[in-house]
Computed example of a mutant assay.
Amino acid sequence: MAEEPRPAGVHEGAQTPAAPVAAEDRKAAAAMSKLDANQNDDDAAAKKDVDAEALGKAMKNLDVSDNTTPKNVVKKVVKVDQADVSLLVNHLELTKPKATELLKAHDGDVTKALTAFVAVS
């Protein structure tokens, strides 16, 4: 193969000139260098230790018991008719558990359950 002539401005061993950098690229590079600088700070290690201590204290104060219902409230038992459940399943396209839950929330009354469902939707 024949060697092609080189352009006049190209010299052997010279690096390629840097492409012009857009403003967005400069901003991104500055942001990345700030991130790198923040990761290398000695304060970051101290901050992580403080965060770990705060997390430990918060975890100790968590109460995993079910506090959603007060202890003195008695749940009332609502008997739900299966025909009403199937009616809601067929007409509202709900699952059986959702239909049962909706009926229990409205004391087993189909009209109240339908009205509430339509009002919310």
Rank of each mutant, 00 (worst) to 15 (best):
V50E: 15
K98E: 13
V110E: 05
D63M: 03
N72W: 13
L114I: 14
D43R: 12
V77P: 00
P70D: 15
V85H: 01
E24D: 15
V64E: 11
V50Q: 08
K27R: 15
K75N: 08
N67V: 11
L62D: 03
A119F: 10
V78Q: 03
A19C: 08
A52G: 07
P97T: 03
A22K: 09
D49A: 10
T16Y: 10
A18R: 07
A37N: 05
E3F: 07
K27H: 13
K112Y: 04
K98F: 01
E53A: 13
V78P: 01
T100C: 01
A58N: 02
A113E: 02
M1W: 08
D107R: 04
N61K: 11
L35S: 07
A29N: 10
M32T: 10
E53Q: 06
D49W: 01
A58S: 10
G108M: 11
V89S: 00
S121N: 11
A52Y: 04
F117L: 06
L103R: 00
S33W: 14
D84E: 07
M59E: 11
N38P: 00
D84T: 01
K75A: 15
V110Q: 07
G56M: 03
V50T: 11
T16W: 09
P17F: 07
A119K: 15
T111Q: 12
A46R: 12
M32E: 14
T69M: 14
V77C: 05
V10K: 15
K96H: 02
E93A: 13
A2E: 10
A23K: 14
N38S: 14
T95P: 00
V73F: 07
K75Y: 03
D81G: 03
L88C: 02
E101P: 00
A116N: 06
A119G: 05
L114T: 06
P70K: 13
L62Q: 12
A30F: 06
N40S: 15
A2L: 12
A113Q: 01
V110M: 06
A46T: 10
G56D: 06
K76N: 09
N72M: 12
K60Q: 11
D63Q: 02
L103C: 03
E53I: 08
V74L: 06
Q82G: 08
A29T: 01
V74Q: 10
K75W: 04
L88G: 02
H11E: 13
D84P: 01
L62S: 05
L88P: 00
E24G: 08
L114F: 08
P7N: 07
E93R: 12
A14W: 05
P20W: 03
A2M: 06
V21P: 02
G108Q: 09
A28E: 13
A19K: 15
V89L: 03
K98L: 02
E53N: 03
T95E: 10
Q15V: 03
L87W: 13
K75F: 05
V21W: 04
A116H: 01
Q82D: 12
T16E: 13
N40P: 02
K48T: 07
M59H: 02
V110W: 01
M59R: 13
A31V: 08
M59W: 02
S121I: 09
R26N: 10
V64Y: 14
V74P: 06
A22H: 04
N38L: 15
N90M: 10
D66V: 05
D109H: 04
A31P: 00
H11P: 04
L55D: 04
V64S: 12
L88E: 00
H11T: 11
H11M: 12
N38V: 14
A22V: 07
A30C: 07
D66P: 00
D43A: 14
